[in-house]
Amino acid sequence: MEKLIHLTLRVWRQSGPDRPGRFHDYQSGPVATSLSLLELLDLVNERLTLNGEEPIAFDHDCREGTCGACGAMVDGLAHGPKAETTLCQLHLRDLADGGLVVIEPFRAWAFPLIKDLVVDRSALDRIMAAGGYVSVDTGGAPEANVIPIPQPDADQALAAASCIGCGACVASCPHASAMLFVGGKVSQLACLPQGQPERARRVLAMVAAADREGFGACGNHRECEAACPKRLSLRHLARMNREYLSAR
């Protein structure tokens, strides 16, 4: 039989960027522990809708931990208490029966609030636009196996590339630093021969873009690594620092 629990959701409600916000409590009623927390929010939203009230706005899409659209602070932790788990994969069985669950938006200077739990993370796109790619036009690529890449390098690059761009690293950092995010892309391309020609330019441009967007500097708190749903290693951030120093 399905196990049922009861939760009180304390959710940050704010109708717009310039409007005052406040917490609002919602009772879950008896709900199956097999639900995800976002499915519980769906349920609360359907009840609110039928009462003619505005549902809680939140970003979400793939619901399988890959797209990076969802994200909120749950009891003070980005994506909630379970390690290596995006918000959409946090299930009620991971929470204590009868408990209070506090849900607030990611808060950072560079992530302005839009509505309720929805924040603007377009700054991450602008960092990527500064250099998070190899400048190769379609059409001129050499045969794929011309350049062998040692397997450990390819594995390192893939580990660095597993970032889903959710912003949990920023939200969990006391300095709202985006350095783990930047480090992932810089590290990926620094590990690969294809990334070499633009190696120095890339790291300088991406770090400058992060500064410009108002993200803080890394203070070695390592909260980002703990919060990252893909467990991006701090090693990539360290590699980015080396890249940055040698590029200057």
Binding site: V136, G139, A141, P142, A144, A154, A157, A161, Q188, L192
Partner: peptide
């Protein structure tokens, strides 16, 4: 070919 040139870390 193009995706490898873009630095996509295919398994090797």
């Amino acid at each position: 070919d193009h995706c490898v040139a873009q630095g996509i870390p295919f398994t090797r």
